[in-house]
Computed example of a mutant assay.
Amino acid sequence: MSKNRDGWGKDDEIIRASDDLLTSLSKDPSIMQSIYDVLPNQEKLQEARDRHRSLFHQVVDGAHDKEPELEAARNDHIAKMSLVTGMATLTGKHDPSIPQKLGLVHQNAGKRGSAAGLSVPGNFRMMYEGRSIIARGSAVKGARSYEIWVCEGDPLAEASWRHHATSGKINKIEITGLTPGRLYYFRIRAVGARDAGPWSTFISMMAI
Rank of each mutant, 00 (worst) to 15 (best):
S2M: 12
G9W: 10
K10P: 00
D11H: 14
A17L: 12
S18A: 14
D19C: 01
D20K: 11
T23E: 06
T23V: 05
L25N: 01
S26V: 07
Q33R: 07
S34F: 08
S34I: 07
P40I: 07
E43P: 00
K44V: 00
R49P: 01
R53C: 00
F56Y: 12
H57K: 12
H57M: 09
Q58N: 04
V60D: 05
D61S: 11
D61I: 02
D65Q: 09
K66L: 05
E69Q: 11
E69L: 15
A72E: 14
A73Y: 05
R74K: 12
R74Y: 08
R74P: 00
N75V: 06
D76L: 09
H77S: 04
H77R: 10
A79L: 06
S82N: 13
L83W: 11
V84M: 08
G86I: 01
M87F: 12
L90E: 14
D95V: 11
P96Y: 07
I98D: 03
V105P: 03
H106P: 00
N108I: 05
A109D: 06
A115C: 03
A115K: 08
G117L: 08
P121N: 04
G122R: 06
F124V: 02
Y128Q: 10
A139T: 13
G142V: 04
G142L: 02
Y146R: 08
W149R: 13
W149Q: 15
V150A: 13
E152R: 15
P155W: 04
L156T: 15
A157N: 13
A157H: 10
E158K: 09
A159N: 11
R162T: 09
R162E: 13
H163D: 08
T166H: 03
I170M: 04
N171F: 10
E174T: 15
T179Q: 13
G181L: 14
R182T: 15
Y184C: 07
Y185T: 04
R189P: 10
G192T: 12
G192D: 03
D195V: 12
G197A: 08
P198F: 06
W199S: 00
S200V: 08
F202H: 15
M206I: 14
A207W: 01
A207P: 10
